[in-house]
Simulated assay, not measured.
Amino acid sequence: MRSRVFAHTVRLTVKPFLDVWGRYPGLVWPAGLLDYGARYLQPTRGIGRHRVRLDNCAAEWWEHGVSRGEASTGEGTEGSGTAILYLHGGGFMTCGLNTHRVLALRIGAASQASVLTVDYRMLPRYSIADSVADCISGYRWLLDRGFTPDRIVVAGDSAGGFLTFSTALALAGLGLPQPAGLVALSPLTDLDPTMKLARAEGRECPLIPSSVLLTLAEIAGRADGETPTVSPVDGVLTGLPPVLIQVGSTEMLYVDAELMAQRLGAAGVPVVLEVWDRQVHVFQAAADILPEAARAVARIGEFVRDRVEG
Rank of each mutant, 00 (worst) to 15 (best):
S3H: 07
V5D: 15
T9W: 10
V10C: 06
K15P: 03
K15D: 09
P16T: 12
F17G: 14
W21N: 11
P25W: 06
L27E: 11
P30M: 12
A31L: 15
L34Q: 11
L41R: 12
Q42L: 14
R51D: 12
N56M: 08
A58F: 07
H64A: 13
S67Q: 14
R68E: 12
G69S: 13
H88I: 00
T94E: 04
A104T: 02
A104R: 00
G108D: 00
S111L: 05
A113H: 04
V118K: 02
V118Y: 01
Y120I: 06
L123H: 04
R125S: 12
I136D: 00
S137I: 06
Y139K: 10
R140V: 05
R145P: 02
P149S: 10
V154G: 03
D157N: 04
S158R: 01
S166C: 08
G175E: 11
G175R: 13
P177S: 10
Q178Y: 08
Q178N: 10
A180P: 02
G181K: 03
L191A: 14
T194K: 11
K196A: 12
A200Y: 13
V212F: 07
G221W: 09
D224R: 14
S231F: 02
P232N: 15
D234Q: 14
G235P: 08
G235S: 14
V236T: 13
L244C: 09
I245R: 00
G248N: 02
S249P: 06
M260C: 07
Q262V: 10
L264A: 04
A267V: 06
G268P: 12
L273K: 08
V275W: 01
V280I: 13
V282Y: 00
A287N: 03
A287K: 00
P291H: 07
A298F: 02
G301Y: 05
G301C: 14
